[in-house]
């Protein structure tokens, strides 16, 4: 990624928010939306544009769960860790996904296809346990159902 390009895009986003310091979180959300993570160049540019010390920008960027400072894979796999999903055995799904994807929670597969994360309750408790992949909810998921779903995403047959 070109530094100048990232900086220009960041400038545009900051401008959209009226260069308002209090919009820092919203600005970072837009950057994350754009790049799927928060590039370092963008964070530095935000600090400069808003005249906020970079240490404060970094603090906010690392405090909140939804921000990632490393690139995420094409598909975000989120295992719901809500209480309803937990009591229905969501931890078994996480284990299976870790085994099948050969990564740990929070990591991205080497082919940049999947990033595996845990999410705090998606509020689809009637469908527990659920996993959300690329925004699609997969209800009543069993360990057994995982390989086929992953295969579908790999080959582009989603949903």
């Amino acid at each position: 990624m070109k530094k100048a390009k990232v900086e220009a895009k960041t400038k545009e986003i900051v401008k959209k928010h009226g260069r308002d310091k209090t919009s820092l979180i919203a600005i970072l959300q837009d950057i994350q939306e754009e790049y799927n993570y928060l590039p370092k160049e963008a964070l530095c540019a935000v600090g400069e544009q808003l005249e906020i010390p970079i240490s404060r920008v970094y603090e906010v960027a690392t405090f909140y769960n939804s921000f990632s400072l490393i690139p995420r894979g094409r598909y975000l796999v989120e295992v719901c860790a809500g209480t309803a999903c937990h009591v229905q055995g969501a931890f078994n799904l996480m284990d299976r996904l870790q085994r099948d994807l050969e990564i740990k929670r929070g990591e991205t597969t080497p082919d940049n296809m999947f990033t595996l994360e845990e999410v705090r309750c998606l509020g689809c408790c009637s469908l527990a346990p659920v996993v959300r992949i690329d925004g699609n909810i997969h209800p009543y998921l069993t360990q057994d159902g995982i390989p086929k779903i992953l295969r579908n995403y790999k080959t582009g047959v989603t949903k």
Binding site: S55, R56, Y58, F63
Partner: peptide, 17 residues
């Protein structure tokens, strides 16, 4: 403001960005 926090909870740490 050369230094600040990073992360939260048990991972919270002091340092430079």
């Amino acid at each position: 403001s050369a230094i600040g926090f990073s992360c939260r909870g048990a991972d919270k740490a002091i340092g430079t960005p």
